[in-house]
Amino acid sequence: MITYPLLTKHSTVGLTAPSSGVPHELHDLLKKAIAKMEEAGYTIKCGETVWKQHKAKSAPAQERAAELNKMLQDDSISLITPPWGGELLIEVLDLIDYQQIKPKWVLGYSDISALLLALTLKTGMATAHGTNLIDLRGEETDPTTKQWENVLTTEKGSSVTQYSSQKYQKEWNHEKPSPQVFHLTEPTVWKTIGGGQVEMEGRVLGGCIDVIRNLIGTPYGDVASFREKHIVDEPIIWYFENCEINTADLRRTLVQMKLAGWLDHTSGLLFGRSAANNPVDGYTAEDVYHEIANELQIPVVYDIDCGHQPPQITFINGASGKVEVQNGKGKVTQTFR
């Protein structure tokens, strides 16, 4: 069984930085994002860590964990979200009191996805891989990103469908701010190995492959136990996004996941767009995708709306998912059962 939190209008949102906080010179961006959330009717409980950043983290691990634990145990908070990702979220995983968590959404991506996946695997509570708070500061929000709220207000037993974006952002341009925050200039095309129509069904799990791979072999990456306790051996749809690793490292990571049993009983793989897929000796990301598709004999879809080339679909770890791809367009339906 999966526990599904529920976000309602006028809920309380907890802001904390279990990875990186916001340095002083960028506080204005965070203030704008908070104001937008308040305009939307949410009450904000803001921790101290979000306003700090020193040596690749918002604060020492004990301080980050204490603030996070307080929010995880707070019945009044329906959603916890960080300002953005970072580098050293993994330091707090062993300091979380998993037994005392009250059901609530945790939303984010990048380094935060290590927390999201660990929470779902350890507790069976669904978590949300999607937009960061700071990217909601614009005068308006693009249709794909905007779906985060629709997804998190979906009730248990119901389904929610999202569609691939029309255009995506190839690179960040902070020097030229836009009303939507993102500069959506490139046509979105979801691609499949073999180029044909793809359909897959299974429980949704994943995150930023750079950091969730660090959970393999730890108590926070026990996929086998999660299967037994929460999804009764249903197949898994894995979604991955690549922030920084080259193609050879991507290949090593996928092989490690396979050897560790993470990819057992997998119905399909989804890979987000990435500017980091740098080829090694002519070995491309497409080569990697072809190899893993052939080895596992499952469909592989790539260049989806997930990760550091926004916008991105809100994927729910633990949800029952159906993904359909045809003619470069994607449809993701998630059922909270």
Rank of each mutant, 00 (worst) to 15 (best):
K156D: 11
K32N: 07
P299T: 12
A285L: 09
P179G: 05
W148H: 11
A126M: 06
P219S: 03
G328T: 10
D210C: 08
G47H: 04
L68I: 11
E199G: 10
P310F: 03
E38L: 09
Q312V: 00
L89Q: 12
P83I: 05
P219N: 03
H265S: 12
A59I: 09
I245N: 05
Q99C: 11
L184P: 02
V204G: 00
L15C: 07
G206K: 07
G21L: 05
G221H: 10
G41T: 07
E295S: 11
V181W: 14
E48I: 01
V189Q: 13
H27N: 14
T188Q: 15
F240R: 05
E48T: 13
D94T: 14
G282I: 13
T123A: 06
Y302N: 00
E291Q: 14
I236P: 08
V13F: 12
V232C: 03
T266N: 06
K32Y: 05
S58T: 06
H27K: 00
A248H: 11
W84G: 15
G138W: 10
C208Y: 01
Y109F: 12
I236Q: 06
K32W: 09
N214H: 13
R273W: 10
L119K: 05
Q62F: 10
K104T: 06
Q309D: 04
R213P: 01
S78P: 00
I193Q: 08
A275D: 12
A276P: 04
D74S: 09
V300P: 02
D28R: 15
V300H: 03
A260P: 03
K331C: 14
E244T: 15
D97M: 09
P143H: 07
